[in-house]
């Protein structure tokens, strides 16, 4: 018996080793695309970060990152991204759970899926103006609340052009994105696992703690990191919404490369490099956590 299993586990690996496949041809366009539009620009950017305007090597751009405006921009960016990722993940999980595992009417699901698909892509300038028009200082909801419910958002300390304003705006696409990613993951929880746990005497909480949550952990984690990166790189929404009133890295970066007074592309490169490093670090953390939580998958 155990011999058989060993063979079964080893066999597919051994087989796929020696085969040449035409499948490579199929993914060539993908590789080309990646090289042209991802690898090369990144290399250009990395090189540029270590160059003076006349092309000689320097560490000055990197050193100039260490100034209060830039450091605080990174810090605020990370905070907004973390806040919108965590809140988005939490809310997205609750919604996906309700739709997939809750006893809601069937037709609700395609509705939620479609809406999430649209909303998760609704970012940038249109989103910013949509929020300005509703929750902005003179927005419709702000006005209605003030006029009919006597709630003055401004007096309560809410300002759309602030940290929490930006976070809430980001949540508009973060939550649906989480819902989209988690619904298939929750579908992957097999009904038999829950039933097997129940008949072995486990409470629903014990089932979640020992089985469902550990199984979902990699997806939850991966999705949250994706949400983080998603918010961290979102420049258009932030710029359109807050202009330069909120100091976050993408806006600072945009200011350096778009060619007005601040024009200093090499500082821009260094800023971007910093963003790549932070996103990369988040990914390394993700891979590390995931491997710890996923020993049971090959």
């Amino acid at each position: 018996m155990s011999r058989e299993a060993e063979l079964a586990v080893v066999a597919p690996v051994a087989r796929s080793g020696g085969r040449r496949s035409w499948a490579w041809l199929g993914i060539t366009p993908f590789f080309l695309f990646t090289v042209l539009f991802l690898i090369l620009p990144t290399l250009d950017l990395v090189v540029g970060a270590f160059q003076t305007p006349d092309g000689s090597f320097t560490l000055d751009n990197i050193a100039r990152l260490n100034q209060p405006t830039i450091v605080s921009a990174y810090w605020i960016s990370i905070q907004v991204s973390v806040a919108s990722a965590l809140l988005g993940a939490l809310a997205g999980f609750v919604i996906a759970y309700a739709v997939v595992l809750g006893k809601l009417p069937r037709p609700l699901r395609p509705f939620v899926t479609t809406f999430s698909g649209v909303a998760s892509q609704f970012a940038g300038i249109p989103l910013a103006f949509a929020f300005l028009a509703t929750l902005g200082p003179t927005g419709l909801v702000t006005a209605l609340l003030d006029q009919y419910a006597g709630i003055n958002l401004r007096a309560l300390g809410f300002n759309l052009l602030s940290f929490w304003g930006l976070t809430i705006t980001y949540l508009y696409f973060q939550i649906p994105l989480m819902v989209l990613i988690l619904m298939p993951a929750l579908d992957g929880l097999r009904k038999e696992w829950r039933e097997a746990a129940a008949i072995l005497g486990a409470t629903p909480w014990q089932y979640w703690r020992h089985v469902a949550f550990p199984v979902l952990w990699p997806s939850l984690l991966g999705a949250t990191i994706l949400l983080f990166a998603n918010a961290f790189g979102a420049v258009a929404t932030a710029y359109a919404l807050t202009g330069s009133s909120l100091n976050i890295v993408p806006i600072l970066l945009y200011a350096q490369i778009r060619g007005d007074v601040l024009h200093d592309p090499h500082l821009g490169y260094a800023l971007a490099l910093g963003m790549i490093l932070i996103t990369g670090l988040a990914n390394v953390g993700y891979i590390w956590l995931r491997q710890r939580g996923e020993r049971w998958i090959k």
Binding site: W193, E195, A198, L200
Partner: peptide
């Protein structure tokens, strides 16, 4: 409830917990 019956069950699809 199933968890109060002390009944054992074996499923067609084995239903082993993959993470354990």
């Amino acid at each position: 409830k199933p968890n109060q019956r002390n009944v054992g069950m074996v499923f067609q699809s084995y239903a082993l917990f993959p993470n354990l």
